[in-house]
């Protein structure tokens, strides 16, 4: 392929000799690139430059205020050999990813299925369930979460009815991460909407045919819904995992950017942010970012490789 494109740029005589090549390129490649054009302009003009710059910075000491100094792989060396906070934040993030992503997806899918039954008041429920996601990164969330999960918060008042005296969930290092996982699940609106859109694409006549054949609801779910929904499941799983790895805002607003108590909510990107803007080590922060990218990239590539065994496209 490379050989051919090199050839095509060679000389006018050659081009004239192979007129079909150009028309073939035009026929085969041009439409694709034309549709891709806005993205390509954005990628090459706005995105790739800053990305490469950050890669370069990861090999430097850069304090934001003066020029960066090249330090080779020092940042990466330090990370893996002499930085307990790196490992601590990695553990917190891994824990968060492992628990929040499956729970959130299962919850979103279950609600989407429930809402896809053509029940009365569907638009109202859909809107109600989406409401928490509207709040986004509002400062109000931090205050709300304290009202619920502090020692004298709502949860403990409910527990007290059953005679249980609960801890201050949000400020106890053993439980604080769970309050963030619950926050993430609470804002399950986006995957739910995407699941709903996916469910809407499944042709109803398939279910009708299956019903006539006497297939149970569960069988219909396993044989029709799940397989046809796999592209959407695949998408949600990949995106939610990437987002969970990059998760920043919940910990930032709830812990006031500290990652406390005792670093129990020190998410990877929160640590990265502290290093970059709190302690003026943008070089080190960039290295942290590229390690995260490598990690998430490997995960994603692996998912794509296995996807041909379980994701069904209509092709």
């Amino acid at each position: 392929m490379t050989a051919r494109s090199l050839q095509s740029g060679a000389s006018a005589r050659e081009r004239a000799a192979t007129p079909s090549l150009w028309s073939r390129i035009w026929q085969n490649d041009a439409p694709g690139y034309l549709f891709l054009l806005p993205w390509l302009i954005g990628f090459l003009g706005l995105t790739i430059g800053p990305m490469i710059t950050s890669l370069y910075l990861s090999f430097t000491d850069f304090d934001l205020l003066t020029s960066p100094d090249w330090v080779g792989a020092n940042n990466y060396m330090r990370m893996f050999t002499n930085d307990p906070k790196f490992w601590a934040s990695m553990r917190v993030t891994m824990f968060f990813v492992v628990f929040s992503v499956p729970l959130k997806l299962a919850f979103a899918l279950a609600v989407a299925m429930l809402l896809n039954r053509g029940i009365k008041g569907l638009p109202m429920y859909r809107a109600l369930f989406y409401l928490p996601s509207l709040l986004g990164a509002s400062v109000a969330i931090a205050i709300l979460w304290r009202q619920i999960f502090a020692g004298d918060g709502l949860v403990n008042k409910l527990l007290l009815v059953f005679g249980i005296e609960g801890p201050s969930w949000i400020s106890n290092p053993k439980t604080s991460l769970w309050t963030l996982i619950i926050l993430s699940i609470w804002q399950f609106g986006s995957p739910m909407i995407i699941f709903l859109a996916g469910l809407r694409q499944i042709p109803q006549d398939m279910y009708e045919a299956a019903s006539l054949d006497g297939a149970s609801k569960w069988r219909q779910f396993v044989k029709i819904t799940l397989p046809l929904l796999t592209p959407v499941v695949f998408f949600n799983a990949i995106i939610q995992t990437i987002e969970a790895f990059k998760s920043f805002t919940p910990a930032f607003i709830i812990s006031g950017g500290t990652g406390n108590p005792i670093n129990s909510t020190l998410f990877y990107t929160l640590y990265l942010y502290q290093e970059a803007f709190g302690f003026f080590r943008m070089g080190y922060a960039s290295a942290l970012a590229w390690v995260l990218l490598a990690l998430v990239g490997i995960f994603t590539a692996f998912s794509f490789l296995t996807s041909k065994y379980w994701v069904h496209y209509d092709e």
Binding site: A142, I143, R146, A150, G151, P167, S168, I170, S171, N172, P173, I254, S255, G256, G257, T258, N260, P261
Partner: peptide, 13 residues
């Protein structure tokens, strides 16, 4: 310690 950890900096905490 548990109560004190609620204080994350802002006055209202």
């Amino acid at each position: 310690a548990e109560d004190q950890a609620i204080d994350t900096g802002p006055l209202e905490t």
